[in-house]
Simulated scan of single mutants.
Amino acid sequence: MSVMKRLLILSSAVAMSLSAQAMTADAVVEKHCVACHQAGLGGAPKPDDKAAWASRIATGVDAMTQTVLTGKGAMPPKGTCGSCDEEQLKAAVEAMVAPLK
């Protein structure tokens, strides 16, 4: 493999990593969470359904984050944000439930 091709692959990987790190909690929610939750796909609680979220919120943000990390039902591990780290996912969970508290 040529040096130029290696540099291109490396720079692409770094750019993808940086773009995932730079995403705010709201951006993660909008890009990776809203589609399924808005439609209630696979039983996902809808963003404005306080009753559906109540028992989840009662478990705490850490427990909800662990659910996102491991997946649940139709939701794959990390939702659809395979490049998100635990901190980003926790921030996204906090952003999703903040209006419901």
Rank of each mutant, 00 (worst) to 15 (best):
K78W: 03
E30A: 14
T65C: 14
S55G: 15
T24L: 03
S11A: 13
E86M: 01
A22V: 05
G42T: 09
C36Y: 05
K46A: 13
G43K: 15
T65L: 12
S83I: 02
A92H: 02
T59L: 14
G73M: 12
P47E: 11
E94H: 00
A35E: 12
M75R: 12
A20D: 05
A58S: 05
V68A: 14
G79F: 00
L41Y: 11
S55E: 13
C84D: 03
M16I: 05
T24A: 04
S83K: 11
M1R: 04
P45C: 09
V29G: 05
Q88K: 12
A74T: 14
R56V: 00
A91V: 01
V28H: 04
S83L: 11
A95F: 07
D62A: 13
S19R: 13
A95H: 12
D49W: 00
K50F: 06
L100G: 08
H37C: 10
P45M: 11
A58I: 10
L8Y: 03
Q88T: 10
A91F: 00
C81G: 06
L8H: 06
D48V: 09
A92W: 00
P77M: 05
A35D: 09
A54D: 13
T59E: 14
A74W: 13
E86N: 00
A63E: 07
L18W: 05
S2V: 02
G79D: 02
L7Y: 05
E30N: 15
C33F: 10
V97L: 02
C33V: 06
T80G: 00
P45T: 11
V97E: 04
S83A: 15
S12D: 04
A92N: 01
L18E: 10
V34W: 07
A44D: 10
A39V: 09
A25F: 07
E94K: 15
C36E: 01
Q21F: 10
A92M: 03
K90L: 06
M16S: 12
K5S: 14
L100H: 03
K46W: 07
A13Y: 05
G82Q: 05
A35Y: 10
K90E: 06
A25P: 02
G43M: 10
M64D: 01
G71T: 08
M23L: 11
T59D: 07
A54M: 08
G82W: 01
L7V: 08
Q21L: 13
A91Q: 03
Q38A: 15
Q66E: 15
A39K: 14
L8P: 07
A98L: 11
A20H: 05
L89A: 04
A95Q: 12
D26I: 01
I9C: 04
A58P: 09
Q88E: 10
G43Y: 07
A25Q: 02
W53P: 13
L69D: 07
D26P: 02
E87T: 15
A25R: 04
V93R: 04
T65N: 10
E87S: 14
W53Y: 09
D49C: 02
A13M: 12
V93H: 01
G40P: 08
A27Q: 15
C33R: 06
T67Y: 05
P77L: 07
A25I: 06
K50V: 13
Q38T: 12
K72L: 12
G73T: 09
A74S: 12
A52F: 01
R6Y: 07
E94P: 00
D85C: 10
D85F: 08
H32V: 03
D26N: 14
A58D: 11
A63M: 12
P76E: 04
D85M: 05
P99S: 08
M1G: 15
V68E: 13
A58W: 10
